[in-house]
Amino acid sequence: MDVLSYFITPLMLWGAWISGGILERRHLKGLLLLESGSREVLAITIEDLPPDWHVESCELVMGNVVISQDYFKRFAASIKGIFGGNIGVFEPLLERARREALIRMKGVAHARGYHTIINVRLETTTLARSRPDGKGTAGVEILAYGTAITLSEAWRALPGGGGASARPFA
């Protein structure tokens, strides 16, 4: 039993490395697919609209995702943390989460019939670990939110109107 316990941590690290890598690649592949689908919703971070845009209705839309790093990468990051510098293993994680949150926000807007989202904001929150000893689950939540708007039909029909640029594939 004692001999076995020496192998558990390396085994978990190895398992997490393999499966974490597979899950990450699968997620990235899925993201590309979803992003190509959500291109018909235009999301912009500016708030002040051009004065000739006639907005008919608006609504707050949001998308969120809680994501966690795999055991192997957390281990790698803790070693890297001793020396400082860029912790490269965390960057793709947060990038993936932000893209996912944006896609979900656009999905909500699209389902409700909106094609433009203005004043988009992204927020990041670290969730508390579920156990007092500092172990247990730790997740990062990314929230994307913005105001979805519809433009009036008459304006959308104008040549070069925002409707056309907002929906390149529609």
Partner: peptide, 23 residues
Amino acid sequence: KDIMATLKNVVGGELKGYTALLT
């Protein structure tokens, strides 16, 4: 759900239970 999330934390990825909770 916390136990499920702890298990999911080993392989990484989305913690769906928590996403739903926060939504």
